[in-house]
Nucleic acid binder design. Structure first.
Lengths: 253, 253
DNA sequence: GCTTGACTCTCAAGTTGCTTGATACTTTAC
DNA sequence: GTAAAGTATCAAGCAACTTGAGAGTCAAGC
């Protein structure tokens, strides 16, 4: 089934001009052009547009979306899992906003007191956090606190995403080998691997001792990460947690 | 306590340049200016900024926010109640998105079938609906389906909001008088009032027989509306429901 | 009293993600 | 066979900011 701009627009709710605009900037190219110059879209594009809408919903810039989606090993299913997590987070955030409303109403009616900063609970912190969390998440990592990531990643090109992703994959495979060879998490070889992992993480954000250990704990607590890492080796998570703890205690402050 | 742009920015999470921009367009003026030209904000502005953020969160244009907030009888508590309702609606919408994700994942894994339109459930319809619902809501009415409202209200000035609001208030008071005088909902006098109510509603949206009756039912089902109308007279809702039903059956199609 | 650094101001230009409008060709429906 | 509806390109406009330049202000430490 071929979709013209009009049909695609009606199906997806995206305006025709936006669709043409996405073509112009190379975000969503039509499958082909008719002899008349008409744009025609097919199944693959429908999925891509859905992905674009999810990223857009989460506040990503089109240029960032392009880099992520254009990345060689962009994994639709994994991305959808991440979208889901962030959306669930947004629900929490919205509930916090509702809570802020309830408190403000009570305050305005003179029934409680309220700190001025409480007026803005739910507006900023968590939304930002979720954006930045997300960037990491896409590369299969999700720390608690990230401030630098956005700045750094902002200027990444498609190739950077590809490189970063494959470096992460390589690293994980080496960890798996280490586990298979029954190496000690404290051994020099493994600690060198952790060091590389730490450097890799620094692509996004520079953890402290505390947050780096927190990150490893996050791996084990988060079902999706767990699944992701256990694809490499079923003991991957516990091993990583131990190795990272040792590295952090000895090398970070 | 006086807040400079910097302090207000840190408290609210809104950027300094945005704060200055809001001053420039007259959306949020500082309480006063120092002799040095510095902007100083106080308590009242903190609440106003909170309101602005809620409206912004719900996708309103700054120009619309200005008209609504600038309206004479803009009621903070009522507005917060509306914000809350729309946010709860957004939670529903987000849950629908999550559902769409779940379905898409299953589909991509080949475990179910899926219609192409289902790819986009949750992205468009409900968000638009909530925006438009909201416009009405602010004027204390909230129908199910509104398409024209946005277009019409878009060009309203502050004075239009004021006029509309006071016309609504006047009308409700006349209904209350009619009830006190024990008039029949079917009587000529009351039906004339309903006609004016219908014309007033058309400010936002033109109901059909079905949707106009639906609107009156909404009044009785929605706790906030109920409270609002019962401020005029405790039997207001039942009376309105009856009167509107008669009017709709006889005059609309 | 002076410097330093953080903060403030204004004003102009740039950015993102579109939308709108002009002009012109193509397809579809009666 | 013609009108309506849909397609194209290209340029300009718009909302809501952000960024940058240039200049004045304030508070802390020496």
């Amino acid at each position: 089934m071929k979709y013209t701009v009009n049909k695609l627009s009606k199906l997806s709710g995206v305006s025709i001009s936006a669709i043409r605009f996405y073509d112009e900037i190379g975000l969503l190219k039509p499958t082909c052009r008719g002899e008349n110059g008409y744009r025609y879209y097919e199944q693959e594009q429908l999925f891509l547009l859905q992905q674009i809408l999810f990223f857009r919903e989460l506040g990503f810039q089109l240029s960032d979306i392009q880099k992520i989606i254009g990345s060689n090993d962009f994994d639709k299913v994994a991305a959808l899992g991440s979208h889901k997590r962030v959306l669930l987070q947004n629900i929490k955030r919205t509930k916090e906003l509702v809570n802020t409303i309830n408190k403000t109403i009570l305050y305005l009616k003179g029934k409680t007191t309220m700190k001025n900063e409480e007026l803005y609970y739910g507006f900023n912190s968590e939304k930002q956090a979720s954006y930045e969390k997300y960037l990491i998440d896409i590369s299969k990592v999700s720390p608690d606190v990230i401030y630098e990531s956005k700045e750094k990643i902002k200027n990444w090109k498609k190739a950077d995403w590809d490189r970063c992703h494959s470096e992460g994959d390589k690293l994980n495979k080496e960890f798996a080998v280490a586990i298979e060879n029954d190496l000690d998490p404290a051994s020099e070889t493994v600690q060198q691997l952790v060091k590389r992992h730490y450097e890799w993480i620094k692509n996004f954000w520079t953890p402290t001792k505390h947050t780096y250990i927190g990150l490893s704990n996050l791996y084990s607590e988060h079902e999706d990460f767990k699944k992701f890492y256990e694809r490499y080796n079923s003991h991957m998570i516990e091993f990583l947690v131990k190795a990272i703890k040792i590295f952090a205690e000895e090398n970070l402050s």
